[in-house]
């Protein structure tokens, strides 16, 4: 899923400092699963913003709505009647949300309530980690399920680099060296020879480097 973090309260307060009537739009997709932009988090942010404004002695009305997904025009359509009634609208979805809302309702000003971070999953309750860089040409099977593109700090294809120490990456004692794990797994399997080849340089056209991407399912176009 897409993992995001809520923006610092001060940043959100600053976005809406001149607004008295605000709508918060949550999303029931990824950001609900990673506990940052669902109904509950929308409620918490609304309450927090109201309290903060009250301390300043000013009024703030906040309405809340949480829709199925903000990455689908079908659901974006559902706020059509109300979205124009506010000074500002804060999207609590990933970066797709405020863009789809802005595209659908060009007269309204939308703000991102979240910082979208990565494609990943929960490794324990309350902790999410990056697993995919969306490079567009998956090679995970060559590395026994461990992606060096997303998980090596240098995305190198022939690791570990000289900075790998005791299973951890040179950049931080909190970051594992994925190449250490790849090598150990290959060694356990007796398949070290898999790592003794020089892979051709990656074709990054399938990644963001090839420009903004688009996926088309021909079979759906004709439905």
């Amino acid at each position: 899923m897409i993992v995001a973090n809520r923006k610092p309260l001060e940043e959100i307060q600053d976005m809406i400092k001149d607004c008295g009537n605000v709508l918060l739009v949550g999303c029931k997709g990824c950001v609900t699963v990673c506990n940052v932009g669902g109904k509950k988090e929308v409620e918490i942010l609304a309450a927090t913003l109201k309290i903060a404004r009250k301390k300043e002695g000013k009024a703030l009305n906040i309405d809340e709505v949480t829709i199925e997904r903000q990455c689908d025009p079908e659901y974006i359509e559902l706020v059509k009647e109300t979205v124009g009634n506010y000074d500002a609208v804060i999207s609590m979805a990933c970066g797709v949300g405020p863009q789809f809302l802005s595209e659908a309702y060009p007269e309204q000003k939308f703000y991102p309530g979240l910082d979208t971070e990565f494609f990943g999953g929960a490794v324990q309750h309350g902790v999410w980690e990056e697993r995919c860089a969306g490079c567009g040409t998956c090679v995970i099977h060559k590395y026994d399920g461990l992606c060096p593109i997303a998980r090596c700090s240098k995305s190198i294809m022939h690791g570990p680099c000289g900075g790998s120490a005791q299973g951890m990456c040179e950049i931080s004692s909190e970051v594992i060296c994925i190449w250490d794990q790849i090598v150990k797994k290959k060694m356990e399997q007796g398949k070290l020879e898999d790592l003794l080849i020089t892979n051709n340089a990656k074709d990054w056209r399938s990644a963001r480097d090839g420009g903004p991407r688009r996926a088309i399912r021909e079979e759906l176009l004709n439905e």
């Binding site: 000289g162 790998s164 120490a165 060296c177 150990k184 060694m187 020089t198």
Partner: peptide
């Protein structure tokens, strides 16, 4: 370059070979 002192040690000579 080659760093014999990085980990995992057993692999370093293979990386050199590469």
């Amino acid at each position: 370059a080659c760093n014999p002192f990085a980990d995992p040690y057993e692999f370093r000579v293979h990386r050199l070979a590469n």
